[in-house]
């Protein structure tokens, strides 16, 4: 692939992502729910923190609550991506497009992930304003970088979720019970070391657990490059696996004439 093709692909991805962010923003109640729900998580985390004698770092809890919101955005946003396109009557056009199906879906899952990043930012701001959380301004660039990489990696993870939920008519019902276990496994509020031993390796394959580590480390000024690199690496793996899975599903459905079942 030459440089201009890569640049053209990046521009195309950014344009499509911006388009889908605008598309998802049309439903104001969904946007509001995405942004408000993590604030409730933050309040629960705060009150449990107070009840537990304020032993944990409050900034970590606020970041964790925001990341809980990102999980919800990804699971519902990416899980229902096919259903949403079917509902809008655009699924057939997307499937008929000459581009690879995965390159059409990834901007949508990334847009969902961007909403998750926005909810994380809002939750952190809520923590700063309401719960007097201290964030050192010198650490903000590192946190922003870590959040950006986590957002992109979670967008890639969303591609796999979209592929898994392709034929699910009630994708929300299926996504809903999966969210809390993912909160636990990715160690966003309680560190992975708090998990039972057999579950710890599972958390290592989730980009969110590396991303959460990187954001938390960046917030305290600790080294975060390893977490960031691992987050990016797992994101790339999910991009490849998710692209392969969704392209296979799309091709099989076209071959067997099952697109109407989507």
């Amino acid at each position: 692939m030459n440089m201009s093709a890569a640049l053209s692909g990046a521009v195309s991805f950014l344009t499509a992502t911006r388009f889908h962010i605008r598309d998802l923003s049309r439903e104001t109640s969904d946007v509001a729910l995405n942004l408000i729900t993590p604030i409730f998580y933050a309040c629960i985390a705060y009150f449990l923190h107070v009840a537990g004698g304020r032993q944990q770092n409050l900034a970590d809890l606020m970041i964790g609550a925001g990341l809980m919101g990102m999980w919800s955005s990804i699971m519902f946003g990416a899980g229902t991506v096919i259903k949403a396109q079917r509902y809008q009557g655009t699924l057939e056009f997307l499937l008929g497009s000459p581009k690879r199906f995965s390159s059409i879906i990834i901007p949508i899952t990334t847009a969902a992930s961007v909403f998750g990043a926005a909810s994380m930012l809002l939750t952190l701001l809520w923590g700063v304003v309401v719960f007097d959380v201290r964030v050192d301004l010198a650490h903000v660039p590192g946190m922003t970088l870590a959040a950006l990489v986590t957002t992109l990696a979670m967008g890639c993870f969303g591609l796999l979720i979209a592929a898994l939920f392709v034929q699910a008519r009630r994708a929300e019902s299926m996504a809903s019970p999966m969210i809390a276990p993912l909160w636990m496994l990715s160690g966003i509020l309680v560190p992975v070391s708090g998990l039972i031993e057999p579950l710890r390796p599972v958390s290592r394959v989730l980009p969110m657990s590396w991303g959460a580590e990187a954001v938390r480390a960046a917030a305290t000024g600790s080294p975060y490059w390893f977490g960031l690199a691992s987050c990016a690496a797992t994101g790339v793996v999910y991009l490849l696996v998710g692209s392969w899975a969704i392209n296979v599903v799309a091709r099989r459905s076209r071959d067997k004439g099952e697109v109407n079942l989507w």
Partner: peptide
């Protein structure tokens, strides 16, 4: 199936999560 997924499985998972969080925060 949909009722069980949304109204039973989800709260079970959430209560396990909050119990896990509570035990780690000593609450």
């Amino acid at each position: 199936r949909h009722f069980v997924l949304a109204m039973v499985a989800t709260p079970i998972m959430e209560l396990i999560f909050f119990a896990f969080l509570g035990s780690n925060l000593g609450v």
